[in-house]
Amino acid sequence: MWTGEKHLKTVNFCLIDVSNQPKERANFERFLPQKQNDVMAKFNLKINGKTRQVDVDPDTPMLWVLRDHLDLQGTKYGCGIAACGACTVHLNGMAMRSCVLPVSAAENQEITTIEGLSENGDHPVQKAWLEHDVAQCGYCQAGQIMSAAALLKNIPNPSDEDIEAYMSGNICRCGTYTRIKAAVKTAANS
């Protein structure tokens, strides 16, 4: 199932996805899937500090492994082409769009989802999100929070430009951008 055309398409989306995150670009090659078959395979995954095993098509994006196979529905499906950011998770601490991250590329790496960002929902970004009452419908916010947490890990005191550049891949249809920016600053200062 891993056709050449699809392969190229996925790479293209991923490059767009990380264009504002130069540190990730250098490491990008190692995330590309190595397997090119269509049989089911077992994968050992490290998710939120726990080891989980799934038996799926190696192409399956992490988003669907999380949502369909591991019952972790906090990571959201918006577009499926890395264009909206709703599915953002951390792969070894870096923000990645899980809808285009094949499970085969995520094996044995540290994956963090919104459910595992903090034990009690008290990560500085989550606290800042509540303080600024950022969410309206809330659907994109797990992705926004995961991106913001990764941003602050890379740049502890981001400028307005840093925030705009890093968060630009996360779309909010309700238009909560002003509060997102304010909350990122609050989290940076906490």
């Binding site: 019952d71 529905q73 906090g74 959201k76 919104i114 459910e115 989550q126 009452d133 969410a135 797990a142």
Partner: peptide
């Protein structure tokens, strides 16, 4: 007076609450 979203805590911790999350 401004009051915060009563579902805010569920949203920021990724609790299943949307149609897509129904299982």
């Amino acid at each position: 007076t401004p009051r915060k979203n009563v579902e805010g805590a569920k949203i920021v911790t990724g609790k299943p609450m949307f149609g897509m999350d129904y299982r």
